Simulated assay, not measured.
Amino acid sequence: MSYLRAIHPKRSGGELAGVQVCCPGKVNLFLSAGSPTSDGYHPLTTVFQAVNVHETVIASVRDHQTSVTMSLESPNPSVPTDESNLAVRAALLFKKRYGITQGVHLHVDKKIPAAGGMAGGSADAAATLRACDALFNSEASLEDLESLARELGADVPFLLTGGVALAEGRGDLITPLTTDMELTWVLAFQREGLSTPAVFREFDRLHDGREELTPAAMPEPLIKALREGDIDLLADSLCNDLEQAAINLHPDMAETLRLARSSGALAAMVSGSGPTVAALVTGPEQARSVQTLLETLPQVAGTMIVHGPVAGAHVEN
């Protein structure tokens, strides 16, 4: 594709139109990490599942500006709105790649907890790429958008398509997985977030002095469970190498995990780099029971029952 052709914003009735895109968060069913390479990144083998808690991004053109601006539906001091925000960076990268001179405003309604291990920032970035593609009629292919996504972060390429996928490399080399299995999770959000770099630093400290780690190979038992719909095998195959590091930094999570596991959930684990705890349950009745118990914990700021897999970033208007 040539990036030199003229690209014009989408119009509705002659007026510049905003484009609304929703993008889900994710849980990691499996996450194995290796020692950092010379570039500082940790090689990963992980299995993502997109779940039905969504970020919403509305992108609109600012004809008399050239910058990218951002606002939040419910302002959160922990979420920046400048160029350190991944969604703003996504819009800037898209503008640069396609030679767009107009400004873009992003209005973001966040439902995924910030610094919660569910890729809320990456979801905003994936949604922004889809929104800018629709807004400027760029007709970018999925491969084009995935190329941009890989420049932004490890989780962003997966969230463009969602579903379930094996991810390798930095977590950005995606192989979709086929399953007819719908999973129900109870998510317990902790009152304080965790920095992903801090969790990886603690992971490195825990393994300091040991031989170099390599991420596990493809998790065959978990993939078999997804393919055959075997929820017991899947529960036994859940794994997160970052869990202990996250608990060390956020000790209250250990109690959340213990209660989730003792309350009847099939399994419970830290989602990604934490601190969100994801409890796998058999269905709505068990979900409500586990949710009720987890809400009694003082360190739990809130809970949510979610399902997966769901589709990735998609235009809603």
Results as ranks from 00 to 15, higher is better:
Met269Cys: 10
Gly264Pro: 01
Glu295Gly: 14
Thr282Pro: 00
Glu316Ser: 11
Gly274Thr: 02
Gly264Met: 03
Glu243Ser: 12
His250Asp: 01
Pro251Ser: 09
Thr282Tyr: 03
Glu255Ala: 14
Met304Arg: 10
Gly272Pro: 00
Arg261Lys: 13
Ile305Glu: 02
Ala311Cys: 13
Thr296Val: 07
Arg258Val: 14
Thr292Glu: 10
Gly302Lys: 14
His314Val: 11
Thr296Ile: 12
Val281Pro: 01
Ala278Lys: 01
Thr292Cys: 15
Leu294His: 05
Ala254Gln: 12
Glu316Cys: 09
Gln291Tyr: 14
Glu295Arg: 13
Ala287Thr: 07
Val270His: 00
Leu259Val: 15
Ile247His: 01
Asp241Arg: 08
Val290Trp: 03
Leu280Asn: 05
Glu255Leu: 14
Asn248Pro: 01
Ser263Ile: 03
Leu280Lys: 02
Ser289Thr: 14
Val306Ile: 14
Met269Arg: 09
Ile305Tyr: 07
Ser262Glu: 14
Glu295Trp: 12
Leu249Ile: 08
Ser263Gly: 09
Thr303Lys: 08
Ser289Cys: 15
Leu249Gln: 08
Ser289Val: 13
Pro309Tyr: 03
His250Ala: 12
Gly302His: 09
Leu280Arg: 07
Val315Gly: 05
Ile305Gly: 00
Pro251Glu: 05
Thr303Glu: 08
Ala279Arg: 04
Pro284Gln: 08
Pro298Asn: 09
Asp252Met: 13
Glu295Val: 15
Gln299Ser: 15
Met253Ala: 06
Ala265Ser: 15
Val270Thr: 06
Ser273Gln: 00
Ser289Leu: 12
Glu316Gln: 11
